[in-house]
Structures are given as C-alpha cells and as structure tokens.
C-alpha cells in the first residue's frame, strides 16, 4: 500500500469537499423551499394548482437526474430568451446549473415525502385546533406542519443522503467537486482504485455526519413517542 500516494490523493480530494458541501447545502435548501411550494399546491384542493404539482412531481421523479442536469447545462443556452437575459451570467456557470437541477429534482421527491407526512396528521388533532379558533396559516404553522414534519423526517433523511451522493453527477457538467477532482486525478495518475476509494471514504464520512445529525433531530422531536420518563409515570 502506497501510503504516501493515498495521503496526497486524500489531501487533493479534501480540497474539493467545500464545493461538494456547497452543492449539497444550496440544493437541499432551495429544493426544500421549492418542495414546500409544490406540496402546498398539491394539497391545496385547487384542481389547477394540484394538477401542476402532480405534473411537476411526475416529470422530475420520472426522468434521470443526469439528463435533467444536461438539459439545464447544455440546453438552456439554446434559447435566445435565456441566452440574452439578465440571468445568463448566472446560468452559464456550471455550479449554478448543477444546483438548479439538483434542487429542481429533490423538490419533486421532497414534496411527495412532505405530502405523506401531511396525510399522516390525525384529522382529530386538526379538528381540535379548529375548535379553539385556529385556521389558515396559524393552523398549518402550529399544528399541521410540526406533526407532518415529524412523520416525514425518516424518509426525508434518506432523501438528503441521496442528495449528497447525487452531487457527484455535477462532475459531468464540469464542476470540480470531489468526484470530478477524483476523475481528474485518475487521468493524471491512472490509479483508479486508490483515488476512488479515497473519494468513497469522504462521501461515507459526510453521510455518516448527516445521518447522525438527522438521528439527533429525530430523537429530540420524538419525546412524545418514547416511554415516559420515570418522573412522569409516578402518579
């Protein structure tokens, strides 16, 4: 085992971690916001909005993320409207294209995950909230969203981990994140095994940290489902 090469490869790859984290955090953030919009439309009861949301979810869940990313990166520039608009300086950046396609895609999945959470909220708890005078946004903010989020959290952590791994696709639209840098290093050294092992290790560590964080969040939000602490049991 060539420790010297492994450690130098690792150092090279670690320098790309900030880019991977940037792709990840921006796409989870914007994808999450967009998912909230989509799921609101989906459950709005308005046939037009709900139909649009259904179509959106179908398209972005039903087609490969890589193709979506190619369409954004290579495709958008073909439209004059975009090519000559104020958005072009942003949209010609590979990072922006990668974040955009990652966010658009995760929004479709996350919207469905959030919807399953909303459906799991007991109608009786909603009725109790209405009965004390809650409606509209207050009802969503205080009762529906907190309960729905708790139900959705396990599935949502999976989606977030998938997003971390999907950032690897950004290497194919020339973003120099961990996988992209790994490939460049391999083309220079022809040492596929060592470099990709280092890259895999980095993703494993990142996902381990994310999953730990999500588990902690889930634990702190599920006190009501655990056995009562001894102090609460004694009558």
């Amino acid at each position: 085992m060539d420790i010297a090469f492994l450690s130098s490869a690792m150092v090279t790859l670690l320098k790309a971690v900030p880019m991977t984290l940037l792709l990840f955090s921006l796409s989870v953030f914007f994808g999450g916001l967009l998912a909230l919009v989509i799921v609101t439309m989906r459950v709005s009861g308005n046939r037009l909005l709900s139909g649009f949301a259904k179509g959106y979810i179908f398209v972005f869940r039903g087609s490969p993320l890589l193709i979506q990313m190619f369409l954004v990166f290579y495709g958008l520039g073909q439209f004059g409207v975009i090519r000559y608009s104020f958005l072009w300086p942003f949209l010609r950046e590979p990072v922006v294209c990668a974040v955009l396609s990652l966010a658009l895609c995760t929004a479709g999945y996350s919207a469905e995950i959030f919807r399953s959470g909303i459906r799991a909220v007991s109608p009786k708890e909603i009725e109790a909230a209405r009965a004390i005078g809650m409606s509209g946004f207050l009802l969503v903010r205080r009762i529906i969203a907190p309960i729905a989020f708790r139900h959705a959290l396990p599935a949502y952590s999976t989606e977030i981990v998938l997003m971390m791994k999907s950032t690897a696709l950004a290497s194919l639209v020339t973003v120099w994140e961990v996988t992209g840098v790994a490939q460049r290093l391999i083309s220079q050294t022809y040492r596929t095994m060592e470099v990709f092992l280092c890259a895999a290790l980095i993703y494993l560590v990142l996902n381990f940290l994310i999953l730990q964080g999500m588990a902690l969040l889930e634990y702190s939000l599920s006190k009501h489902r655990r056995a009562a602490p001894p102090s609460a049991v004694k009558a």
């Binding site: 009786k124 708890e125 004390i132 907190p146 009501h224």
Partner: peptide, 12 residues
C-alpha cells in the same frame, strides 16, 4: 369543545 377521543395534540 371536548371530544369523545380527547384529540390532544400528541407532539405537545
């Protein structure tokens, strides 16, 4: 309003 099945908010 008091309901037959209490309808307390489970997460609170």
């Amino acid at each position: 309003m008091v309901f037959q099945s209490f309808n307390l908010w489970s997460h609170m």
